[in-house]
C-alpha cells in the first residue's frame, strides 16, 4: 500500500500541495483529475520521491519513501513521466529492456526473465513489429506507447502514469486501458493515473480524486461523478451519460450546433 500523510509542499512561497492524506490499496487504480496547476503532477512527483522537499510522509508498505535506496525505489515504483531518452539511436527493443536494469546485477547482462517480460509488454502495446526500429524513426503514437511500455516493463508494485493518454490513437488508448487493468488484476500492484482525459479516468479508475488548489477537493467512486463537479472545479458545463457496457459515466461537452 502507498499512502501520503499530511503531505505539503511550498515553492517560492506558494503552497503547491496542502495536507494531502490518502492511501492507495493493492489492486486499486486511482485516477487524479483537476485543473492545470492544481497539484496533480506534483503529488505524483512526491509519491515517486522525485520531489524530496515536502513536509509530511509518503509511505510504501509503511516505510518512508525517502528511506529507499535508488535501486530499491525503482524496483518498487515505476513512473512514466521520467522516461524520455536523451538520444534516439537505439532500437525499440534495446531501449525497452533497459527498464529492467534495477533487477539485474551491476555489470551483468539481462536475464531470460527480463527478455520475456520485455517481449510480453511489446506485444501488449503492439510494438513487436518495431523492435529493430531505431527510436528516432517512431511516430508520436508509437513513441508514446514505447514510453508507457517502459514504465510497465519494470513490473514494479506501484505504477504511476502522468498524462498517459497524450499522443495515443484510439486503438492505443484501448490497449493502455487493458494493460492497466491487467497490471493490477493480481491484487498486489496498484496504479495511479493523473490525466486531463476525464473519460479515460472515469472508464478506467476504481476511485477518483479531484484536486483543487493543492488539496483533495473530492474523493469519489466513478459512479458518483456529476456534472456539478465539473462546473465547480473545471468551470465547464458538461452532461454525463452512462456507458451501456459497464455503467460507468461518460462525460460530454455541450457543443454549439
Amino acid at each position: 500500500m502507498i499512502e501520503s500523510r499530511k503531505l505539503s509542499i511550498k515553492k517560492n512561497g506558494n503552497e503547491i500541495l496542502s495536507d494531502i492524506s490518502t492511501a492507495i490499496r493493492e489492486g486499486e487504480i486511482l485516477g487524479i483529475i483537476g485543473r492545470a496547476g492544481s497539484g496533480k503532477s506534483m503529488f505524483l512527483r512526491c509519491l515517486c520521491a522525485d520531489e524530496w522537499n515536502f513536509q509530511g510522509e509518503v509511505l510504501i508498505n509503511r516505510r518512508p519513501v525517502r528511506s529507499f535506496g535508488k535501486k530499491l525505489l525503482h524496483k518498487t515504483i515505476s513512473c512514466s513521466h521520467h522516461y524520455k531518452p536523451g538520444y534516439l539511436d537505439d532500437t525499440v527493443y534495446d531501449y525497452l529492456i533497459m527498464s529492467r536494469t534495477p533487477f539485474k546485477k551491476l555489470f551483468n547482462p539481462f536475464g531470460e526473465e527480463d527478455r520475456l517480460i520485455t517481449e510480453e509488454y511489446m506485444e501488449q502495446f503492439d510494438l513487436t513489429e518495431y523492435q529493430t526500429t531505431p527510436l528516432r524513426y517512431c511516430t508520436s503514437d508509437v513513441m508514446a506507447r514505447i514510453i508507457l511500455a517502459f514504465a510497465f516493463i519494470r513490473k514494479a508494485p506501484v505504477l504511476l502514469l502522468d498524462n498517459p493518454t497524450c499522443n495515443l490513437s484510439i486503438s492505443s488508448l484501448s490497449r493502455l486501458q487493458r494493460s492497466i487493468m491487467r497490471y493490477v488484476i493480481n491484487g498486489e500492484n496498484q496504479c495511479v493515473i493523473v490525466s486531463h482525459d476525464l473519460n479515460f479516468i472515469t472508464q478506467t479508475a476504481d476511485r477518483i480524486l479531484v484536486f483543487d488548489n493543492g488539496m483533495i477537493a473530492e474523493d469519489l467512486n466513478p459512479g458518483e461523478i456529476t456534472a456539478d463537479i465539473f462546473q465547480q472545479y473545471f468551470n465547464t458545463e458538461v452532461f454525463i451519460s452512462r456507458n451501456i457496457y459497464n455503467g460507468k459515466p461518460s462525460i460530454h461537452l455541450y457543443t454549439e450546433s
Binding site: G69, K70, K71, H74, S99, T101, L106
Partner: peptide
C-alpha cells in the same frame, strides 16, 4: 534519471 536505475 536513467542512470538512477542502476543504483549507481
Amino acid at each position: 534519471k536513467y542512470m538512477e536505475l542502476t543504483g549507481l
